[in-house]
């Protein structure tokens, strides 16, 4: 498998605080890599290092096979676009002027493609409106358009949906999917809004306290997030006794609820429970969410 970004034992220390502590990860080409972690886990620090805004304390990373210590890393960064935390836009300029300014920075000979970029991010009708009066979603989309100048192969987005309203979230999500599917751009997206990430990502990297806890594909995660049946019964002890006798895995939630992790003949189970003096009140299929999987990975304690 080809990787566009690889890190190896990457560390970043701020005096005594270890923002990254031996982080090792790989972003496959063509993926939407969801970088999941709590606030302060080290997501933004990693992105800053990749973008050249900060230097690692130790360890190394590669962008398109070029190590960070290599002078050619500048050329590799040219194949990358990024929106780090807040979009990098001149607030006193229009969307078009912002893109022209980025074209100048990149040294592109002509302003070709600006119209297409504005259409791609849905800002073609902003006219002479200054970026300062844009909504947060529009600024975010303009930030992505600026990151897309120079047609990068890798797009790095740091918390792109933070602070957006539901409509804005949908727009950004659709844009990211469009870029990945139509333009074959690899996307590294960091977020702590796991539900939203699960609608996008093809690969995941779970980070906690500056370390990658687990890397997996969306398929592997789907398998890991186990489905269960949540049963509401009148006598949870009788339910436990019956399930124990069948050797079925379960988890008691409270005095009347339990999760059962198995494919069962529920008619048979209901009859057996009835014989034990327990009635089944409700049953519903329940997926273990990405959140609970993440919590189980990082332990749920405060960092």
């Amino acid at each position: 498998m080809d990787y566009v970004l690889k890190t190896n034992e990457l560390c970043k220390h701020y005096r005594h605080f270890k923002a990254l502590d031996g982080l090792t990860m790989s972003v496959p080409k063509g993926a939407i890599y969801g970088f999941v972690g709590r606030n302060g886990a080290g997501k933004t620090t990693l992105i800053r290092l990749i973008c050249g805004m900060q230097d690692p304390t130790s360890g190394e990373f590669e962008i398109y096979g070029v190590k960070n210590s290599d002078k050619a890393i500048s050329l590799s960064r040219r194949r990358m676009g990024a929106v780090v935390e807040t979009p990098s836009v001149y607030l006193d300029m229009t969307a078009e002027d912002n893109l022209k300014q980025q074209y100048r920075v990149l040294g592109l000979p002509a302003f070709d493609g600006i119209k297409e970029l504005l259409e791609l991010v849905g800002l073609e009708n902003t006219g002479k409106k200054k970026a300062g009066s844009f909504s947060l979603g529009m600024k975010q989309r303009l930030g992505i358009a600026i990151a897309l100048c120079g047609e990068p192969d890798l797009l790095v987005l740091d918390e792109p949906i933070n602070g957006l309203d539901p409509q804005g979230i949908i727009e950004i999500r659709e844009l990211i999917l469009k870029l990945n599917r139509e333009k074959r751009i690899t996307v590294l997206i960091s977020s702590h809004i796991l539900d939203e990430l699960s609608r996008l990502a093809t690969h995941y990297g779970f980070i906690d306290r500056g370390r990658i806890v687990k890397e997996m594909s969306a398929e592997e995660l789907e398998n890991a997030c186990r489905k269960c049946v949540r049963m509401n019964v009148t006598n949870v002890k009788a339910l436990a006794k019956t399930l124990d006798a069948k050797g079925i895995e379960y988890k008691i939630l409270d005095a009347s609820n339990a999760d059962v992790y198995a494919r069962l003949n529920f008619t048979e189970l209901a009859i057996e429970l009835h014989n034990e003096g327990c009635d089944v009140l409700t049953m519903e299929e329940h997926d273990e969410s990405l959140e609970s999987f993440f919590i189980s990975l990082v332990g749920g304690g405060k960092a």
């Binding site: 050249g52 960064r77 040219r78 990024a82 780090v84 990098s88």
Partner: peptide, 12 residues
């Protein structure tokens, strides 16, 4: 405005 970041990302 954070526009200095886009210059660093652009490889400068």
């Amino acid at each position: 405005d954070g526009t200095i970041r886009s210059k660093l990302i652009a490889g400068y």
